[in-house]
Every structure is written in C-alpha cells, then in structure tokens.
C-alpha cells in the first residue's frame, strides 16, 4: 500500500524514512594528512591514508576508519572545515561527529539552504562563546530566537581523548518544536542542502600560551563518523526520494504535486494554492474543473477567497465552443445541446442563424432560437411564417400575403 493514501484511497500526509543523509556522500575537507606523507599518514598508501571518505563510510564497531587533518604547530590555531553536500533539501534532525582525536575546544556548525551559495550558523560549541563566536553561552531559547544558532560549552571537554562525540539536535529546546506542523519558522530552520563543520580551536594538553617551543607536539583533528540524521524534504507529499534522469535526488511526489521537494502543484492542478501536508490535512493539489474542455488553468486568489477557500481555478483557452471560468457554458453564436452532457465535445451547437431571415447571429443559449425578422419563423429563422411569403428584399425577407 502507498503510505501517501489511506485504505479508502484518500490522500494523507506521508514522509520519507529517517536516514543518515551523510552516508556514502562525499565530504570536502579543507585539510587532509598524507601529502606529503608522514610517519603516521600517507595519502598514497591505502593502509596509512585517512581520506575524507572515511567520514561517511560504513563503520563497524571496533573498526572505525578515521579522516585526519594535517598536523599543525600548537602555537598556530588553524580552522579546518568539513563540508558535506546532501544533494537536495533535507529536514535535518541532528548533526553528529564522533572523534578519533580529542574533541576540539571550539566547533561551529553551519548550514546552507541554497546548495552552498550562502551559509548560516547552526550551532556553536566553545568554552569561549563570546570571544570566538560573539554569542552568549547557554542563552535561553524563546520563540523570538528559536531560529538562531546558539553557543554552548557542552561537548567541549577534552576527555575522552578518543571516541568523543558532538551531537547537535536541531529542534532540541526550541519552543515551537511541539507544534512543528504550524511553525514555518522551524520548518525552515531544519531545512538544509549542505552542512559545514568548522573546527576553530584544538584542545591542547599543557599550556597553550607558554608551551610554544619548536619541538612541542603539534595537533590534528580526526573524525571517524560524520552523520546528518533527517528525512528527505518532500513537504508531506512523498514517502520516498529517488534519482531523476539526470541523477539528481528528488522526491517521488504524490497528491498531484511536483518539484524536487513536491513544492508546487502539477499543471492543471491549481484549483487551490499549494500547501504543505500536515497530520490533519493532506492538502493535495486539486485539478481545475474545466469539463474536459481545457488543458490549462490559472489560480485566482480573489475567486478562491470568494468561494470560501474552496475553488480558485480559472480555465484557460476553453475549447469545443465553450466559455466561462469552468468552460461550463457555450460561447456566443453557440447554444447548449441539452441531450449531451456538458463534458461532451459536441455539447455546444452552432446557432447557424439564417444570414437574411435572422436579426442577429446570437441565439438563445438554452433553446437555440435565433432572433427572427418580422414574418420569419423557424429555429434558425429560415422560413416565412404562416400568412407571409418570401419577398425580393433581403431587409424584409417575408411580407404579409395581401
């Protein structure tokens, strides 16, 4: 059964399964050890290499493969970044990093919603929040700032020296998380196409400021697992994501929606505006009512409001001689053949008013009766009435018999 429809085939909200969106994806690291090779790391030797691909590969318990940065002198704090492209918009639930080195003392997490063009802060970890990131430490979260990055001194402890974790839960402590369906702010907050982690300061054993001799041991960053937990963003209109013809990740849209995130209605399905599905209402896109006489329609907000938010579609280019918002009546010069349904291609018949006997070309919409000149009769005004005979004048085609 399709999760996007219930047992009565009625639409209902559906979401793709929860996944580690980072798994198997490429990570761009600003620094990786092994070029040139050192005693611990050689990029050209698979047994001694620590490439970024180890961040998102399959990790078995007890067999963690670790990415590792270059080694830096301890008196020279270096920013090292890991950038992960998710390939499309995801609704991110958490970002986690499991370290093979000691956890950094300061870490910043950023997200992009436009495939890496712009970045916004997502979360900061530091014992010096104000100095490094200009943020107060452990600020209280309110509805006014729940879509802003916070800074905390949690997860910054040096210990454990290996295997330490940083885990950022995107909705944790956000007041509107309980009413996520009705919070466009948080729906936006969890949306990301890319995640970037920047290690800003290492944890150094000993004194950072005094131990600056040339032969003092340096430091490096090393991470075994970079996870981004979440769901492919489909706005409640798809239960799975797959690759399109160009190999791009896209939602398998239902409810008459389309787009990478099912973020618009299909053509001809704009009888009401696009909306995200929620637990109460699937908000599927509805086809315009055009009685099979039009292939295109447009949405009119005024009409939608006037209808009590039921129908706002306006049919375009009504065919088969029909007219009107729903192609529901016959255009001028045609009349309704009541023996056929309005959906019939021949529901509208030509008035066929006589060029001489009729006073005009437009007939009665329901009966088809043309307006006849004096003394003329018939549906199309093509005969003289009883007591009249044809004259030679096209202005008065029938005259009274003397």
């Amino acid at each position: 059964p399709d999760p996007c429809y219930d047992e009565n085939s009625l639409p209902r909200r559906c979401v793709p399964e929860f996944v580690n969106a980072a798994f198997g994806k490429e990570v761009q690291a600003s620094s990786t050890c092994g070029r040139p090779s050192t005693r611990q790391c050689d990029a050209s030797d698979p047994k001694r290499a620590h490439p970024p691909s180890y961040l998102t590969d399959l990790n078995n318990a007890g067999n963690m493969t670790c990415w590792r940065s270059e080694s830096f002198p301890r008196h020279s704090p270096q920013n090292v970044s890991l950038t992960l492209s998710l390939g499309k918009k995801f609704e991110v639930t958490y970002v986690s990093l499991q370290f093979c080195s000691p956890r950094p003392e300061s870490v910043a997490i950023y997200k992009s919603m436009d495939y890496g063009k712009t970045w916004v802060p997502y979360q900061f970890y530091s014992s010096q929040c104000r100095r490094l990131y200009g943020k107060p430490s452990r600020a209280s979260v309110t509805k006014q700032n729940e879509q802003e990055a916070l800074c905390t001194d949690g997860y910054t402890d040096l210990y454990p020296l290996t295997g330490g974790l940083i885990a950022f839960s995107t909705l944790d402590g956000r007041p509107s998380a309980q009413d996520f369906d009705n919070s466009p702010v948080l729906q936006d907050w969890v949306t990301a196409t890319d995640i970037r982690v920047v290690f800003s300061r290492p944890h150094l054993q000993g004194n950072r400021d005094t131990d600056v001799s040339e032969d003092a041991p340096g430091y490096f960053y090393s991470v075994g697992e970079f996870q981004v937990g979440g769901r492919c963003k489909c706005n409640g209109h798809a239960s799975r994501c797959g690759k399109d013809k160009e190999g791009r990740l896209v939602c398998d849209c239902k409810h008459n929606t389309e787009g990478p995130e099912c973020d618009r209605c299909k053509a001809f399905h704009y009888d009401r505006p696009w909306q995200r599905a929620n637990a109460r209402e699937a908000n599927e896109c509805l086809a315009c009512t055009c009685n099979l006489h039009a292939r295109r329609c447009r949405f009119n907000m005024e009409l939608y409001k006037l209808s009590g938010r039921k129908s706002g579609g306006v049919c375009l280019n009504c065919r088969h001689n029909t007219a009107g918002r729903h192609c529901h009546y016959c255009k001028e010069g045609f009349y309704r053949d009541v023996s056929r349904p309005i959906t019939d291609r021949r529901a509208c018949k030509a008035c066929d008013c006589h060029p001489v006997g009729a006073a005009g070309k437009t007939c009665n919409q329901t009966t088809g009766q043309c307006p006849c000149k004096d003394g003329v009769t018939g549906l199309t005004c093509n005969r003289c009435a009883k007591g009249y005979q044809q004259s030679r004048s096209p202005i008065a085609p029938c005259i009274k018999i003397p």
Partner: peptide
C-alpha cells in the same frame, strides 16, 4: 403546414451589396 425555406436566389441584392452573405 411547413413553409419552404428562404430561397437566396430570389433576393435582389442591388441596393444591399454590402449585406450580401458569402456563399
């Protein structure tokens, strides 16, 4: 009684050439 349909050939269009329908 059904009357005959109007016979277009019987009309004299001399003064009404601009009203004459295409045939």
């Amino acid at each position: 009684e059904v009357m005959p349909t109007l016979d277009m050939t019987l009309f004299d269009w001399t003064d009404y050439e601009d009203l004459k329908p295409d045939t």
